[in-house]
Design a binder for these strands. Structure first.
Lengths: 96, 96
DNA sequence: AATATATTCACCAATAGCGGTGAATATAGT
DNA sequence: ACTATATTCACCGCTATTGGTGAATATATT
């Protein structure tokens, strides 16, 4: 399994702070699923060019394309902006 | 403090599964900061129209605009796709 | 090192978002 | 209810993204 990208090679943070981190996360997941760009693009329903741009940190892509990739690869985003950090359910939280 | 949006009114999930949830999250944060669209748009460096579209769940906006809003409002995104759920640091995780 | 595969890049036409304005609608305060 | 404020919406020109193709580059495998 060469060509596998370890998350430890990524920036030392779990926060998706920008498009660059998001792109590396996507690429890490895709390569670990042993998919090539063409397969992944087809699975996600976007063009191979767009997927390549996303993986390379291009922020000038549509949110729609990003969510297509996240859904296709099973990557789930959450927010840290909860008043009750002991629960991930928004029902247990409100802005303070 | 009228006009305050409680997160408990939002979908019963902390996952940002789509643009609609993301938009509600943004609006909840903005209103709790007592900002109007114009102020927030100026703070985030985007147009008021674009911010309104984002808050209303429009996925056909640029990722760039979304991150501008997230940074402007201090909303941090994380991923659940970590092999070691006890650590938020990517350095402690790798894809399995 | 050589070959096969994968990814990136430049180029293109078609499409779509962005920001601004002003009007319509919705919401808040008295 | 009325007024003031805030938000949404339609329209617009400008600009940029998208997806496809093919070439160039990078990466893997033997």
């Amino acid at each position: 399994m060469a060509n596998r990208v370890k998350v430890s090679d990524m920036p030392n943070s779990a926060y998706i702070e920008d498009a660059e981190v998001l792109g590396k996360l996507v690429k890490a997941k895709r390569t670990n699923m042993n998919m090539k760009l063409a397969d992944c693009a087809a699975l996600c329903g976007i063009g191979i060019n767009t997927l390549s741009r996303i993986e390379n940190g291009n922020a000038n892509c549509t949110l729609s394309a990003v969510f297509s990739v996240l859904h296709g690869l099973g990557i789930k985003l959450t927010t840290k902006e909860l008043s009750n950090p002991n629960s991930n359910s928004l029902a247990d939280n409100e802005w303070v």
